[in-house]
């Protein structure tokens, strides 16, 4: 068998290239604004995903897909939510909690999952195009707000970013409680979509 035969042939789909583009833009933007940790997170993510694609999807985080009961996940999410609400913001407890959440969701979401098409292909295409356009518009609007507020003298507070608008909300206990619940429920919804293969 020749070397060429043993090396898996890598095909980059348009969808994968678009995702790499989005993640690259996120990484560059975070590094440009001086958020080194945030930028580093996206660079590390890009590196892992590119390595996985180049290996033909052979990278495995765990030997076998993790099977968790839905009740276990919901109870874990409740503990996470409680810690994020009670522990001091930007503190070590919250940091450790978030790292553990990141590891857990990566393990749950990494394994391949079967496709469950329920709609016509064109309906998926329209939906992904429309929601992607709305998402891109939102990101562009925020990027312009950030750039304008940081470049126009005397207009520091005139073009608020989402971070500027939400920071006081998350800083308040009631606001943080609401924000944490929304964030955790969104995460559960995303994992429900693909990650959980529990018995209940």
């Amino acid at each position: 068998m020749s070397t060429a035969d043993s090396v898996p042939r890598i095909r980059w789909t348009r969808r994968e290239l678009l995702w790499l583009g989005v993640l690259s833009i996120m990484a560059v933007f975070q590094l440009w604004r001086g958020a080194w940790i945030d930028g580093g997170i996206f660079v590390a993510l890009l590196a892992v995903l590119v390595a996985d694609t180049l290996s033909g999807g052979r990278i495995a985080l765990v030997r076998r897909p993790v099977m968790l009961r839905r009740t276990t996940i919901v109870m874990s999410a409740a503990v996470v939510a409680a810690l994020l609400i009670v522990a001091p913001r930007h503190g070590i407890v919250v940091m450790v909690t978030m790292v553990m959440v990141g590891v857990a969701v990566a393990i749950l979401a990494w394994p391949a999952t079967p496709d469950r098409d329920r709609r016509p292909d064109r309906a998926y295409a329209r939906s992904s195009t429309l929601f992607s356009l709305v998402g891109a518009l939102f990101c562009l609007w925020e990027a312009f707000a950030y750039i304008l507020s940081n470049t126009l003298p005397g207009f520091d507070d005139a073009f608020p970013t989402i971070s500027v608008l939400l920071d006081p909300v998350v800083g308040d206990t009631a606001g943080r409680t609401f924000f944490v619940i929304v964030w955790v429920v969104a995460g559960l919804a995303l994992i429900r979509v693909r990650g959980v293969r529990g018995s209940q």
């Binding site: 789909t13 969808r15 994968e16 995702w19 790499l20 989005v22 993640l23 993510l45 892992v48 995903l49 996985d52 694609t53 999807g57 969701v105 990566a106 979401a109 990494w110 391949a112 999952t113 079967p114 496709d115 469950r116 098409d117 329920r118 709609r119 998926y124 992904s128 995460g187 995303l190 994992i191 979509v193 693909r194 990650g195």
Partner: peptide
């Protein structure tokens, strides 16, 4: 659900 069939999209979104 459909898009997250690929690992790139699944991990990217999460």
């Amino acid at each position: 659900d459909h898009v997250m069939h690929t690992r790139m999209a699944r991990i990217g979104l999460i």
